[in-house]
């Protein structure tokens, strides 16, 4: 793949990859925290935490909502810079040269 990209495109791809790995690690840590509390301090999960919800419900719903927010943030961070080349659409990766459907 790299051999098809210009230097600017390769740098952009690398930046995206770094962002993706960092966000994965952050989310993994939050997820691991949930598992650790559930396993080693399960009674904490019954404590009132936020908006009348106990920690289990607040943390669980939070993990889902954080995933959605992370996804949107990641997409914003990965938008092609106005001055940069447009990586992504790759000639030859579309079998039969199909036309995008709406």
């Amino acid at each position: 793949m790299t051999q098809h990209l210009s230097e600017a495109e390769a740098a952009f791809e690398k930046r995206k990859l770094v962002i993706g790995i960092r966000m994965t690690l952050i989310y993994s840590a939050v997820y691991a925290g949930f598992v650790v509390v559930s396993v080693f301090q399960p009674t904490w999960m019954g404590v009132r935490a936020l908006l009348g919800l106990n920690l289990a419900v607040a943390y669980g719903l939070g993990l889902i909502l954080v995933a959605i927010v992370f996804a949107i943030v990641y997409n914003q961070l990965c938008r092609v810079p106005a001055s940069g080349a447009a990586p992504g659409a790759q000639p030859g990766a579309v079998p039969d040269g199909g036309k995008q459907e709406k």
Binding site: V94, P95, D96, G97, G98, Q100, E101
Partner: peptide
């Protein structure tokens, strides 16, 4: 009918 059409919808899905 084609390989791309059958297996990956011609990579044309929005």
């Amino acid at each position: 009918a084609s390989v791309g059409g059958y297996f990956v919808a011609n990579s044309s899905i929005h």
